[in-house]
Design a binder for these strands. Structure first.
Lengths: 314, 314
DNA sequence: CACGCCCATCCAAAAACCGCATCGGTCCAT
DNA sequence: ATGGACCGATGCGGTTTTTGGATGGGCGTG
């Protein structure tokens, strides 16, 4: 008693049948193109028409023509089928790592010089890899790497997590940031001793542990004791204080790109000469297929970064 | 030995299953939403993954997560599904005549006044009906109606074809086009006798049969014989000759919208007072669903057109 | 008027799909 | 540490759907 059960939605197979029939205007040839015989093709088109509630093809035993609605639906069907193919293609490209998105965490300081260089000069080697940037301090990056909020972090050591793989991507020297009028500007370069008992805008141990500990260690090893007048965590804030004449600051070379008026820079001789290190870190079990292509961008070749290393000093 | 036979293309049902699973991140709930049980849903998603050659969902026995490729494919799948719905909707709207395209033939003269009024004032009543315009003379329109190149024609009688339905949509009077300096401009209105033995730019019998025969008949009935100095088929060409002072012309009122410098118009009293008739014609068996809505625009209500008529004078 | 072409329909066989029962793995509470 | 709850995958039998061959019927052609 119940008639044939029409699904409430059409299927792509029906669309393909319809497009073939609409283009051939001949059920036999259309069926051949679809690698099937004519009766099932007729049936599929009938099904499609029933689902839509619309006659798409006007067929006599002699001719097949598109109805006005069929003309419109033909365009729509072609668009849908094109979209399915491009969707499959795009998805496969993501899966193979040819294209994709990498979410990258970075510290403010690495954003001054290393990151722009990376994006401008290297990213062209992988034009289909989109890099989504998130600025956060190193500790946040480690947390975000664990939760998967970022794929890769650009951060400062120590990175004491066994589930991470790390790569040293850059190391740089320190420079003194001095206000105009500071006598030490007469020297071409400074030594740590030049900061003994002099006012210094220092890194805060909480928000900038890495720089704080590194400078602290360097001064102690050189038996130098600067007068710490302020402790901040953001380089640009420190330079603002320097500009106000509150004291000097010791910052990574990359900070020179900040260009504060009335603040000048002089290299600071240290041992080792490039104590400021930047590492990339990512979870070894990160399954983002674009990761490989992105890491390829990081590998230094003739750049100013030191040799790669999978071992991390603690 | 041979494994299960995967189709080479995915189906919309698999897309719907995947979207449900990706949104619920839970196969059981997704299956419930799809009105089926969990095992077939698992299979559909496996099938989809095999067809794409891409893992879309990372599933342990405890959690379900999207892979990066799955995230991309989810967006694409949603887009495809949205498109299928809008395609069905648009097609149904075409089929019911709520929307659609009418290809309309029109004569040059009807384009001066009647057609702009129709499109500007009436078309807003059927905003989803698109009117594609094709200018052609009446004979061409009849031919195009038969071959289906146009759905409706705006043309001059006679329309002696049994397969057409016709409707008088406008009738108008005649005006004299006179060059500056013509003595007859002193009169507020002219009679046909004012053209006796005067130079007249006439319609050509080939290209403008309707106007030629009508004027010819009017003059003969009034026993008036103008001096025909030129015969043209395009009104704007005739007015250009009038402007050059070659003679007067008798044209439909609508031609006054042409605004030639140094050409002025005066009404011409005729019997009947509105001898210039414009008809709409269409094939009775035209299956364009938008036809009904378009014809609704044509029906005069308080307009200047005469009453509708299915009978056509010959 | 007979023939050929072409789409629709009928029917049996094949394929696909679904639901049930169940397995194996993980997490959680005890 | 262990038992139970939860969850997705898998095996299997029954049902629905689809397919292809044969056939029917309408229409144009010679």
């Amino acid at each position: 008693m119940t008639g044939p059960s029409f699904g409430s939605q059409f299927e792509l197979h029906q669309l393909r049948c319809f497009v073939a029939a609409a283009e051939e205007l001949h059920f036999g040839r259309a069926a051949a193109r679809m690698n099937m015989t004519q009766p099932p093709l007729s049936r599929q088109i009938q099904l499609l028409e029933h689902v839509l509630g619309v006659k798409l093809l006007d067929r006599t035993s002699r001719t097949v023509k598109l109805t006005p609605a069929g003309r419109v639906f033909l365009l729509e069907a072609r668009r849908i089928l094109r979209l399915t193919e491009s969707a499959a293609l795009a998805t496969r490209r993501i899966a193979t790592g040819e294209a994709g998105t990498i979410t990258l965490g970075f510290t403010a300081a690495s954003g001054y010089s290393f990151l722009p260089r990376l994006l401008l000069q290297r990213a062209s080697a992988a034009p289909n890899i989109h890099v989504a940037l998130k600025e956060m301090v190193s500790a946040e990056q480690i947390e975000s790497l664990l939760t998967g909020r970022i794929d890769v972090g650009l951060l400062r050591p120590p990175i004491a997590r066994s589930e991470f793989t790390t790569l040293k991507v850059a190391s740089e020297g320190l420079v003194a940031a001095l206000p105009v009028g500071d006598g030490r500007l007469a020297q071409a370069s400074l030594s740590l001793a030049d900061f003994d008992d002099a006012p210094l805008v220092m890194y805060a141990p909480e928000g900038a542990r890495y720089f704080h500990d590194m400078l602290d260690g360097l001064f102690k090893a050189a038996r130098v004791t600067p007068r710490v007048v302020q402790s901040l965590s953001q380089i640009h804030s420190m330079l603002a204080l320097v500009r106000a004449g509150i004291g000097a600051a010791v910052v990574p070379e990359a900070a020179m790109s900040l260009h504060f008026d009335d603040v000048h820079f002089r290299p600071v001789v240290t041992d080792p000469p490039h104590p400021v290190e930047l590492y990339a870190a990512w979870r070894a079990d990160n399954d983002n297929p674009a990761l490989g292509a992105f890491l390829g961008l990081l590998h230094p070749e003739g750049g100013d970064a030191a040799a790669a290393s999978d071992e991390m000093p603690d």
